[in-house]
Design a protein around this nucleic acid. Structure first.
Lengths: 324, 324
DNA sequence: TTGTAGGCGTTATCAC
DNA sequence: GTGATAACGCCTACAA
């Protein structure tokens, strides 16, 4: 690897001068600059980012900690973050935490040791205090940890209301809800939204709320049980698309036609929703925009720019397809 | 951030000694070691990886360049790679190349500047020469660039033969193929496999091979056109699952029932295949194992261990579900 | 306008 | 056994 010293020698100047033209800082005569640039080109020199990082105490690297990139919700987010980061000169380290606090903590340590400039975090196990102690900018996404930490989320409650109301408007009389995990904030918000619409209905009972874990298989199982015990159910709002697909499977297994016999609506707007047959009606999150925003805010924070506001709640949109 | 110097001072020893206990290298008396360890614990000291990297010229970081993490084929691969890397003490930088040579090249440069220790590459735009010039270990995955570069792939041809033969065995008489892009090696291999089974059939014509691009929408379009112009087609082997789903959509749009009127089989075994209704029969790749192997081989290469062989071709497995 | 030199936090080579 | 000290490649006072 050719170093700044080689360039200096080649151009018969000092390393300081080379550094100056490299960073466009300080005075350099046009002539010397040209000489240096020629040397750089000739030697195909590229500054060593590690040395730079050591000196500057920052690495132009972001950490991205999410539960599991295999969860179809995250790839689009990750892509948006990576795109935006790249555009702004940053690189991103991918970490899968599996919602495991210890694992997340380990990644946090490693990222710190590697001098990452900031972290984007989708987690419900990490607490505010831990984040504060990191002493580097952190942006939370999808899951809110504290109002005092920059956060990019979506209006879950409103989206859930929209979904439930939509089912009602479609003439559905008994609307059930497959909720997400209790320790995930958005799952609780979505459940609240659902309740906001149905809790005053005379038919409503708690048994219309069944517990899912955001995964398909479990959703199929619990939905099937629901359909068996409550054959009157004619509409399901699942707290995410994956579970909605699971519910569709359950409906078929139970001999029900979607959407003729039962309407199913999801939440998230992942690619899967468009790939299912019938295609899934869902509450679509602007996933790419969320990721983009997260990266932008984080980098602003890193670069010390003033942030207008730190809590961003995006709107969500009903996309009607074939399952309702 | 507390540095090795702070620890040294705290333990009243020299930095050299601290370094020795840190790396378990050289002689350190039990007593001093204990002192140092106490100081480390007390100050909660963690060595600075950047400084380490600078000195050692390696960063315990891997680069992962793939076309697009949003393509459902890649998350599982990425996850396996990240898991394995983490277990072995490495971290991974995610890069999306969009099959764009220039973009990939840019990432390569950046990764080099960051001293990554090795790169895992899924690309068909980068040439062998470019890889050689990197002067760091590279392993290719999913797409073969050269027999001389460590590569992890699957027996595409055989898998394609299996798929096509399976359709035949199911009694399908006119089997079409939606192929992948011409510049992707596995697409060509899969097409060859298909041809191996059908090219000698008397009904076979080139018009049974239609061009897809591994994406769903296009597949739906071309499959629909095929079904219209060739209503006799009763089986489709799509070169990947995403296109197989697209073909299912086309079948439904055309008024055909799957699998009653037409059988459809995919390739890859992505999660989507299990989520579709009906569930997709497919040729399943051991995705996680592939990623794991890639990471392991790369790290072996990095750590200078001898590699038994560098070209790994995994077997593929027919998974029969509901679409055939 | 340019060069010298010290330091970022580690590791490794020598002395002692 | 332990401690100075010179790298690693870069940046930035400070001098010249």
């Amino acid at each position: 690897m050719v170093s700044i010293r080689d360039v200096a020698k080649h151009a018969s100047v000092s390393v300081a001068t080379v550094s100056r033209v490299l960073n466009d800082k300080g005075y350099v005569s046009v002539e010397t600059r040209k000489k240096v640039e020629a040397a750089i080109a000739e030697l195909n020199y590229r500054p060593n980012e590690v040395a730079r990082s050591l000196f500057k105490k920052q690495s132009k690297t972001l950490g991205l900690i999410l539960p599991d990139i295999m969860n179809p919700f995250f790839p689009e987010l990750a892509r948006a973050i990576e795109d935006t980061a790249a555009k702004l000169g940053y690189t991103v380290i991918l970490c899968n935490s599996d919602e495991d606090e210890e694992k997340a903590q380990r990644y946090l340590d490693i990222l710190l040791q590697k001098y990452v400039d900031g972290i984007i975090l989708a987690s419900n196990t990490i607490r505010e205090k831990t984040i504060r102690e990191l002493n580097i900018p952190v942006v939370c996404i999808d899951r809110e940890i504290s109002k005092d930490i920059p956060t990019i989320v979506v209006d879950n409650k409103k989206g859930a209301r929209t979904a439930t109301q939509f089912l009602k408007d479609k003439g559905r009389k008994r609307i059930a809800h497959i909720r997400g995990p209790f320790d995930v904030s958005n799952a609780n918000e979505r459940c609240e939204g659902y309740l906001g619409i149905v809790s005053s209905e005379d038919w409503f009972t708690e048994s219309y709320i069944i517990n899912g874990n955001y995964h398909m298989e479990t959703a199929t199982k619990v939905a099937l049980a629901l359909l068996q015990s409550h054959p009157e159910v004619d509409g399901i709002f699942a707290a995410n698309d994956t579970m909605a697909i699971g519910a569709m499977k359950a409906a078929y297994q139970h001999g029900l036609k979607v959407p003729e016999d039962i309407s199913i609506i999801g939440f998230d707007g992942i690619a899967l929703a468009k790939a299912s047959i019938p295609e899934l009606t869902t509450i679509e999150q602007p996933l790419y925009a969320l990721g983009q925003k997260a990266a932008k805010v984080l980098i602003q924070l890193i670069e010390g720019q003033e942030i207008e506001k730190s809590f961003h709640q995006f709107d969500v949109q009903l996309v009607e397809r074939e399952s309702t």
